[in-house]
Structure formats: C-alpha cells, structure tokens
Amino acid sequence: MSAAYWFAYRGMVVKQLRRFLRTWVQTLLPSVVTAGLFLVVLGELVGREVRALDGVSYTEFLAPGLIMLAVVTNAYNNVTLSFFGAKLQRHIEELLVAPLPAWLIVAGFVTGGVLRGLLVGLLVAALALPLTGLELRHPGATAGMALLAALLFAFAGLINGVFARSFDHTSVIATFVLTPLIYLGGLFYPVGRLAEPWQTLSLANPMHYIIEGFRHGLLGTSAIAWPATFAVLAVVTAGTGAAAWALVARGVRVKP
C-alpha cells in the first residue's frame, strides 16, 4: 500500500473508532449486558439443572456462542449504520471525491466493524472468564475464527448499508435474519441432540459452523470438522467481500 493510501486508510479507521468509542453506551455496552444476563440467568441459574454438555458445564458451553454473537452482530451493525449514516448525511461524498480506490473505501468501513466486533467480543470474554475459566485450547484457531467471522459479517453489513434506504432497513436483517440464525445455530444447545428434521435444518444454518468452530477453538470440544469449517468460512468471506467491493465500485444507491 502506498503511503498516501495508508494515510487515507488510517484516517478512515480513526473516524470509525472515534465514532463508536464516543457513543460506547450504544455501541459497546448493550452486547456486554445481554451476554452477562445470559451467562448469569441461563448459565448459572438454569444451568445448574443441566447436566454437563459435551463434557463442559452449561455456562462454559454458552460462553463461546455469546462471544461470537457479540462479535458478529457488532461487526455487522457498525458497518451497516456507519455506511447508511454516511449516505444519509451525504458525507460518503467526502470519500467519493477523494483519490481512493473502492477497495480502500470498503477496507475503511469494514475495519471499523471488525474492530468493534472484536472489542465487544473481548469485553464479553472478559466478563465470562471469572464465571467459566475459558481455557483457550487453540488460540490460533480461536483468533482466526473470530477474525473471519467479524470480517464476513462486516462485509455483509456493508452490503446491507449500501441497499438501506431508511433506518428500518438497517435493523431488519439483523433482527429477523441474523439473530434467529444465531439463536437456532447451537448457541444454547448442542445441535446433535435435536430431533429430526431440526437437526438437519440446523446443519444448513451457516451460523452453526461459526459457533461450533469457535467453541472448538476455545474449549476443544466440537461437533464438526473445524478445518473444513475454516476453509468454507474463508471462501464465503472472500465472496461476500467481492460483492461488497463491486457494489461500492459501481456506486450502487450512492451515485445517481
């Protein structure tokens, strides 16, 4: 990357960071509170009644999924809202007039989402740690899975931001598609214990693989082949990134 591109990228990322740190009560706190409630209410109170799952306590079973939930929803929402906000207030034009290639504009927005996703994920992990004693069995796989998932959802959030014409459009996918997929993807229970057809349906849910892969990295347990998960996730992320790039390069819903 040339020095000029590096300075531009840095400028975009600094703005993204300032934005979500300045409004931390809305951007960082909610996911931490939600995860804390799930850990205490479900993990500690209800979990006492549940026998060990996959060889770990219920709180431990929950924690990786809750961290992943925080990572992907924050990565997604950050990019959707900051891109939509930039369209609404028209300061997207500051980037369009500048000598920046489309991939760099995508990189600026997506980095903001990834950073927020990972930061909130770390905060949730820090909260879960005293309750669960997470072991971090495979640090490389854990970090890799978190980063890939954050990237994938940041790209997807950018696509949502491109198409959004109103604030309703910025939350509809997160509320009605993402959250159900995560909740039904094995966050709260091992999918293998479901009856048919729910088990097969769950295996078609992409979030299932992300949650299981991450759980494997953290706890060493897993119901799936995680190297394959990694490979598929990487391919899907690259595809989503290419789609986001194409939309920004064409100026869809941005340039008349």
Partner: peptide, 23 residues
C-alpha cells in the same frame, strides 16, 4: 455534505487524510 456530529477541525483533517496527506 459533512458529518454534522463531527467537530469542524476533524472534518477538515479527515479530508486531508483521504487525499493522502501525512498526519
């Protein structure tokens, strides 16, 4: 077409960065 929630100085400095000026 600027971000009204940003301070004046940051708007101008941000555009400088987008044009590749060193900090």
């Amino acid at each position: 077409n600027f971000n009204s929630f940003e301070p004046v100085g940051e708007i101008v400095a941000g555009q400088a960065a987008y044009y590749g000026l060193s900090p």
